[in-house]
Nucleic acid binder design. Structure first.
Lengths: 339, 339
DNA sequence: CTGAAAGCGCTTACAG
DNA sequence: CTGAAAGCGCTTACAG
């Protein structure tokens, strides 16, 4: 069933059928009505490939998400889609494997779907090379700064990871904590984890605190199980910790469960804080002390920046969004008896 | 940049270029090499629309997800994608608004992308009419039975909601509970909630228990906040409840937090159980007693069924997957002093 | 192994 | 307002 069949059945030419399909006003009411009838009768759907081939048209905004397990991404994604729709762009989500090269995948997706722009959620820094410019469309990295990539078509929106981690560390220190454990991502691949760790370290050094990273920083996946196992390793390697900083809320949940399974209570025995500020964090018992990355605000800024790049050919920008320290119930003041 | 430009630059015809693009063996090594060079030089990507227009080719399997907030869907989705990839199909995820008509959206998506098949996660039963057959491809509804829809191209894979809810209710009764509250979805739109409620009711009536649905069944959205507010309403309407059955784990988390905020502990004061069996349920404190819907198993069966329909034109089937009652720490035995 | 040509289903000036 | 025709970029028999 093609436009030709419709034309024949309706007794008009293909051009006229095409016009009614495209809401072109230059069609007589009776022609329109008759053609609409036939279209309805056969539930005709014009071939999009042919249509696009002619129109050379693009397709909204592609969102490439690395890993389906990240709840922060899920939250940001919802907001991104809402913002895109509000701005009149359709959006398309592509989940790719955590081990895939997102830039290669983006090239494939651009070739197939010709989006106006591409948004990345999650990234391995090493993949973001100048090859990205060959995509030929504006790109945006979410929740992760790409300022130091210096790729001309790549913008980014994120919180200042280093500063946020430092802020949380300061908070814990102010409450009397001195013996820290950290559960974060793998430093060679997770840029945000590296930034957050350096934020923590800067506070430690300012406070004159020793921090044996080899035993007190545990690298794990950003999952419940990662947090759980990471906490178990911390308990082995430095059972004296009074405060554990998990670099994601999900990891923090895993860590809290591990502590409980080892007979320790949060926050009475050990304080635990997270990072992300998921809605979930606010419903846990204890409510999680965490750094909130404002998903809606980030999405709003991200889409706005990307659209300026698309429509006006604006230059890439790297924007930092204010984070927020959320005080929950998972962190307690400590009286350091040793001091 | 088109195949024609490449052909000219390489000194061959477009046919030959097309052949190397498609790995057709009928190309001399030197032609292949030369053409590949030129392709590489310009980073040429063939136009997918043109390609598809010619090949009339389809595109893997479309997954239409209603609402981005459902964690069970997120889990199932991951498994579905893995299964599709393993079977050699690419997959594409389309999130649609909770208020959208998923069948209309599916029609649009089929017209645009011509998938081999469509998988629905989440549904309003009323939208699943015989219009679905006009999609012309096999469809599959996940986590929700479509047996009574009797649509010839629609299969489904789900647990037996009624039986699962009855099983959980039996379990609670066996532990001595008599005063129940239920937090579920809106019965007019959520088919699974209706089935689960009827499972509960069947046990109540078998046990000779009165259940005033108007006050003891609270309808809410399947969200943390829905669970929280639902629990608050239960506390108002029937403060005597000893056991609360939430029809999703996420709702259960919200309910537990609400109880805590009203000075009640779980499970010491009130028992709470969920439904879904998310990985998260196993990391909460207390671990959640829940019905596990085996995401991996369901995805495996779903994809296998859909592929048989696609490849062999097999008839739609409606398969029930065994659920599992997971005993966590959120439910306690009760001594009914009144008896 | 290669090229010229037809055709996929549509849109859009162009001429009427 | 309408139709005939060109052409979007590719693939694929067909003939050599």
């Amino acid at each position: 069933m093609t436009i030709k069949d419709i034309a024949k059945e309706a007794g008009y030419g293909v051009g006229t059928v095409s016009r009614v399909l495209n809401n072109n006003p230059n069609v007589s009411p009776q022609a329109r009505q008759r053609i609409l009838e036939v279209i309805e009768k056969y539930h005709f759907q014009p071939n999009t490939n042919a249509r696009r081939l002619k129109q050379q048209t693009a397709q909204g905004i592609a969102m490439i998400v690395k890993g389906t397990h990240n709840m922060l991404f899920a939250q940001v994604l919802v907001e991104l889609q809402a913002q895109c729709n509000a701005a009149g762009y359709s959006s398309m989500v592509y989940y790719i494997d955590e081990t895939d090269n997102e830039v290669e995948q983006a090239a494939r997706i651009c070739a197939e779907h010709k989006p106006y722009g591409v948004i990345f959620l999650g990234s391995h820094r090493e993949h973001f090379t100048h090859e990205l410019t060959q995509l030929g469309v504006p790109c945006l990295l979410m929740t992760n700064s790409a300022a130091d990539c210096a790729i001309e078509n790549l913008s980014s929106v994120s919180v200042d990871d280093m500063s946020a981690a430092a802020r949380m560390t300061d908070h814990l220190c102010a409450l009397g904590h001195r013996d820290f454990g950290i559960i974060g991502g793998f430093l060679d691949t997770s840029q945000p984890s590296a930034a957050r760790l350096s934020g923590c370290l800067s506070v430690f050094s300012r406070m004159g605190l020793a921090f044996e990273a080899s035993s007190r920083y545990v690298a794990a996946r950003y999952t419940l199980e990662g947090g759980y196992r990471g906490m178990e390793r911390l308990l082995e390697q430095c059972p004296d910790v009074t405060a554990v900083f998990a670099f994601s809320d999900i990891m923090a949940i895993g860590a809290i469960r591990a502590l409980r399974d080892h007979g320790l209570r949060v926050p009475q025995d050990v304080s635990v804080c997270g990072f992300d500020g998921l809605e979930l964090a606010d419903y846990l018992i204890p409510r999680l002390t965490t750094i909130r990355q404002p998903a809606q605000k980030m999405a709003e800024r991200g889409v706005s920046i990307l659209i300026r790049c698309i429509r006006e050919g604006a230059e890439a920008v790297h924007e930092l969004i204010p984070y927020q320290l959320v005080e929950g119930e998972s962190v307690l003041t400590i009286n350091n008896k040793e001091e």
